[in-house]
Computed example of a mutant assay.
Amino acid sequence: MRLFLLFLLVPLIEIALFIQIGGLIGLWPTLAIVILTAILGTFLVRSQGLQVLNQLRGSFEELRDPTEPLAHGAMILFSGALLLTPGFFTDAVGFALLVPGIRSAMYRTIRKRVNIETVQYGSRPQRAPEDPTIIDGDYEDLDPPKGQQGPSGWTRH
Rank of each mutant, 00 (worst) to 15 (best):
F60W: 11
S59W: 04
F43G: 09
R124S: 13
G23Y: 02
L9V: 15
G58H: 15
G73A: 01
V34T: 08
L44C: 02
G23M: 06
F78E: 03
A81E: 11
T155F: 11
S123C: 05
W28P: 03
F4R: 12
V52C: 05
Q120K: 08
F4S: 08
R127S: 15
Y139K: 04
P125G: 07
A38R: 06
Q51R: 12
S47G: 00
I135E: 08
E68F: 10
G41R: 10
D141G: 04
G122Q: 00
T30C: 02
V93G: 01
I102A: 02
L24Y: 15
P132D: 03
A71Q: 06
P151D: 07
V114L: 12
G22L: 01
R64W: 01
I19C: 14
G150Y: 09
Q20L: 15
L97A: 00
P132H: 01
D136C: 09
D141E: 15
M1W: 13
L40H: 01
F95E: 06
F95L: 11
G49Q: 05
I15M: 09
P69F: 05
A92H: 00
F7K: 12
D65N: 14
G80W: 03
T37L: 13
S59G: 04
P29I: 10
L77W: 05
P11H: 03
I19N: 02
P69Q: 02
